[in-house]
Amino acid sequence: MIINNLKLIREKKKISQSELAALLESSRQTINGIEKNKYNPSLQLALKIAYYLNTPLEDIFQWQ
């Protein structure tokens, strides 16, 4: 199971779900699903999230 700190990191950087979704060329619903652990992002999307949040991938997503 993958757990994530996306919501915590996103809020700390003062970025809304909609703003992050626009940067990622994704939907706000996708970001919401990832944050609620209802959806696991593809590797490509996970890497883009890490890039746009300027945060190491392993700080956002962790195996448990």
Rank of each mutant, 00 (worst) to 15 (best):
M1W: 05
M1K: 07
M1G: 05
I2K: 09
I2H: 08
I3G: 07
I3L: 14
N4P: 03
N4E: 02
N5K: 05
N5V: 05
K7A: 12
K7R: 13
K7N: 06
L8N: 14
L8G: 10
L8T: 15
L8Q: 15
I9E: 04
R10N: 02
K12N: 11
S16I: 05
S16Y: 04
Q17H: 04
Q17D: 03
Q17N: 03
Q17K: 09
S18E: 13
S18I: 11
L20G: 00
L20Y: 02
L20D: 00
L20T: 00
A21P: 00
A21H: 02
A22T: 12
S27M: 04
S27H: 07
R28F: 09
R28W: 15
R28D: 10
Q29W: 11
Q29G: 12
Q29C: 13
T30I: 15
N32F: 05
N32K: 13
N32Y: 06
G33V: 07
I34Q: 02
I34Y: 02
E35D: 01
E35I: 05
E35P: 01
N37D: 08
N37P: 02
K38L: 15
K38W: 14
K38F: 12
K38M: 14
K38C: 13
Y39K: 11
Y39T: 10
Y39L: 14
Y39P: 02
N40F: 14
S42C: 06
S42R: 05
S42W: 04
L43H: 10
Q44I: 11
Q44A: 14
A46Q: 06
A46I: 05
L47F: 07
L47R: 12
K48E: 07
K48P: 00
K48V: 05
K48Q: 10
I49N: 00
I49E: 00
I49C: 02
A50Y: 04
A50M: 03
Y51D: 09
Y51T: 07
Y51S: 08
Y51H: 12
Y52A: 14
Y52I: 15
L53K: 00
N54Y: 06
N54T: 08
N54L: 07
T55Y: 06
P56S: 08
P56Y: 06
E58R: 11
E58I: 09
D59A: 11
D59W: 07
D59L: 12
D59I: 07
F61H: 00
F61S: 00
Q62I: 10
W63F: 08
Q64D: 15
Q64M: 08
